Simulated scan of single mutants.
Amino acid sequence: MEELKRAEDQISDRIADNMKTFGVSSTVGRLLGIIYLNRKPMTLDELAEETGMSKTRMSQVMRQMMALNIAEKEFVKGSRKEHYRVENDYVQTFISLFTTNWREVVSKNSQLARRLQEQLNQVENMYDGELSEPTQKKKEELENELEEWTTYYDWISRLVDFFESGEILDSVPLKRKSPKDDK
């Protein structure tokens, strides 16, 4: 039984390490692994006991996990405590982490692009459209950069849609086709 517990801990630790790839704390990964391997929803008390961390810290991490769409509260009949479950599909967890992070990046950068374009328009309005040649050239360079920027973030947004819709699995199936499948 001790060997099985060690193997389970190694899986949980690997999940925690993998979270760093997504810019997510290893604590999130550790809880993800613990709940996943528990195979049933867990309370904050159970998580605190399992990790040795405070219940307050567990609450903070669970809120973060819910914001990342990899955990949710679940009603457990006969219990007044909040229970949390995690996505038990590795692919869906990856998609949730990937898309949540990139949606945020797209949103922030799209907002910035709009503000910068407004600033460029204000510069032109301040001078009644009569910009010096170097200023006009610089403004055009920045507008071109913003256009490339906007195109790039639009592409990322469409890539996120591709993942969220599940179409990615049509292009990159979970299991490789074997040569026998083509016959």
Rank of each mutant, 00 (worst) to 15 (best):
Met1Leu: 10
Met1Asn: 08
Leu4Gln: 09
Glu8Ile: 08
Glu8Gly: 00
Glu8Val: 05
Ser12Val: 14
Ile15Ser: 00
Asp17Leu: 13
Asn18Glu: 11
Asn18Cys: 13
Lys20Phe: 05
Phe22Ala: 02
Val24Cys: 02
Ser25Glu: 01
Ser25Met: 00
Gly29Arg: 02
Gly29Glu: 00
Ile35Glu: 03
Tyr36Thr: 05
Tyr36Met: 06
Arg39Val: 03
Lys40Tyr: 03
Pro41Leu: 05
Met42Pro: 00
Glu46Gln: 11
Glu50Leu: 04
Gly52Met: 06
Gly52Gln: 03
Gly52Ala: 00
Gly52Trp: 01
Ser54Asp: 03
Thr56Asp: 07
Thr56Leu: 12
Arg57Ser: 12
Arg57Phe: 09
Gln60Ser: 06
Arg63Trp: 02
Gln64His: 00
Met65Ile: 02
Asn69Lys: 13
Ile70Phe: 00
Lys73Arg: 14
Glu74Asn: 01
Glu74His: 04
Phe75Glu: 12
Ser79Trp: 10
Ser79Thr: 14
Arg80Gln: 10
Lys81Gly: 04
Glu82Tyr: 10
His83Trp: 05
Tyr84Thr: 08
Glu87Gln: 04
Asp89Trp: 05
Tyr90Cys: 01
Gln92Ser: 08
Ser96Gln: 10
Phe98Met: 09
Thr99Asp: 05
Glu104Phe: 11
Asn109Val: 07
Gln111Trp: 04
Leu112Gln: 14
Arg114Met: 13
Arg114Lys: 12
Arg115His: 13
Glu118Asp: 08
Glu118Asn: 08
Glu124Ser: 12
Asn125Val: 12
Asn125Ala: 15
Asp128Asn: 13
Gly129Phe: 07
Glu130Leu: 14
Glu130Asn: 07
Ser132Cys: 10
Ser132Arg: 06
Pro134Ile: 12
Leu142Lys: 14
Glu143Ile: 15
Leu146Thr: 09
Leu146Pro: 04
Thr151Ile: 13
Tyr152Pro: 03
Ile156Lys: 02
Ser157Phe: 08
Leu159Glu: 06
Ser165Tyr: 02
Ile168Asn: 03
Leu174Ala: 03
Lys177Gly: 03
Lys177Arg: 07
Lys177Asn: 00
Ser178Trp: 01
Asp181Glu: 08
Asp182Lys: 06
